[in-house]
Nucleic acid binder design. Sequence first.
DNA 1: TGACTTTAATCATTCGATTGAATAAATTTT
DNA 2: AAAATTTATTCAATCGAATGATTAAAGTCA
Lengths: 223, 223
Amino acid sequence: MGKRDGQDAPSSGDRTRAALIEAGLKLFGEKGFAATSTREIAARANANIGSIAYHFGGKEKLRDACAGHIVATIRTIADPVLERLPVPADPATAEAQFRLAAERMAGFMIAGPEVQDFVQFILREVQQPTRAFDIIYEGLIEAVHRRLCHVWAAATGDDPDSEATSIMVFTVIGQIVYFRIAREVVMRRMGWREIGPAQARLIVTTALDNVMAALSARRERKP
Amino acid sequence: MGKRDGQDAPSSGDRTRAALIEAGLKLFGEKGFAATSTREIAARANANIGSIAYHFGGKEKLRDACAGHIVATIRTIADPVLERLPVPADPATAEAQFRLAAERMAGFMIAGPEVQDFVQFILREVQQPTRAFDIIYEGLIEAVHRRLCHVWAAATGDDPDSEATSIMVFTVIGQIVYFRIAREVVMRRMGWREIGPAQARLIVTTALDNVMAALSARRERKP
DNA sequence: TGACTTTAATCATTCGATTGAATAAATTTT
DNA sequence: AAAATTTATTCAATCGAATGATTAAAGTCA
C-alpha cells in the first residue's frame, strides 16, 4: 500500500492522506487551528469530511501528522549538514560555515515561498505549543540549535554547551525569525508591498553584519 | 457615566465594560480569538453574555476595544519619552539612551508579568492582523520604531529615515521579541523552568552586547 | 418617571465526530 | 482464470454540543 517506502505507487488512500496533510498544513498555518474547520480542510483536499477521522483519528491527530510531515520533509534535506558533516576545527572555516548557515536560514524563513506553509505552521506551534510542538522541537529545532551552537563555538572558542553560547545563538535566530513573524509590521513601516528577493537581501545583509560584528567583538575579548 | 475622564466614580456599566476588556485581553492573548468563546469571556468578567453585544456590539468590536485599551494604557506611560523628550544630539548620550530604551523594551517583553497580557495580545495581532492591529500599529508600534530610529541615527550618524536604519532597528527589536515568542523553545533548550529575573538578565546583556557591537562596528565604518 | 444596564431564554449556524451503506481494491478460493 | 471473499476507502447523512447574536422582560439608580 505504499506505506513502507516511496517505491510503490501511492494508493488512493495514500493520496487523500497526503492531500489532507497538505491542506491542514496550509490552513492551520494560515488561520490557526481553532479558526480552521474540518470541512474547510476536506474541501481543499478534495476529500470527504469523514476521511479526516478515518485516516488520522480526528482534527488534533491530523495536526500531529502535519508536524511529522514537516520534520520528515526537512530532515531529508538537512540531515547531512545537521548530523553527518563534522564541525570545522579551524575558526575561520567555522565562521564561514556559521555565516552560510545563517544565510540559509534567513532565505528559508523570509523568502522561500515553497516552505512558507511549514514556517507558518511551526511558528504557530512555537507560540502556542501542543503535541505537534513536541514533534517539531525534538525532531528539528533542537538539532538545528545544537548544531549552530557548536559551529559558533568553533568560530569563537567559546564553550558550545554554555548558557551564554546558547542564548547568543538564539539572538541570531531571533533577528531572522522576527522578520517572518512581524512581516506585516515591517512591510507597513517600510512602505513595502511585499518582502521579495530585493528586500530579503537588505534584511539578510543587515542581520549578518550584526552577527559578524558580535562574533568579532567576542573574539577580541579573549584573543 | 464616567466616560469623559477618570474623575467620575465608575458606574456599573463602566465596571463591567472594563472587566470585559480585561477578560478579553487575557483570553484572546492566551488562546487566540477564534478559540475564545464569548461565554468564556463573560464568565471571567462576571458578566452576562449579552453585555458584550450591549457594550461593544459583538466579539470583534470587543477585540478592537482591547486594542484601544492597550494603546491608551501604554501611551499614558510612554508618551513623554516617545514624543516630547528631544532626541539627544551628542552621539554618546544618544547611544546611552538607545541602550536604555532597549533595556526597557526587553524588560517589558521578557520579564514584566503585569503587561504579559498586552504583549501576547499584540503578538497575535502582529502575526495575524485584523482591525485591532491597525489600532496598535498606528497608535504604538510606529511611534516606538520611529523614535528608536532617530536615537540610533543620532548615535551612529546614519540617516534616521533610511531603509538601512529602519531594518537595523528591527533586528534589535527582533532579538528581544524572539525570546517572548519562542519562550517555550528557549526554556526547553536551556532546561529552564521559567524565564525569571536571572534568566532575563542573561538574555538582555547578551542582546545588548550584540547591539553595542553592531553600533561600534557601524561607527568605525565611517569615523 | 426615564435612561441605563443586566438577565435568562431562545435564535439559527456551525462545529467535530460518527454512522452505515456504497464503492474500489486486494486477496483467497475454486 | 473466474468466482468468492475480505479488506480498504469514500461518501452522504446525521448527531449532539457549542457557537455568536438577539430579544423581551426585569432590574437599577439618579
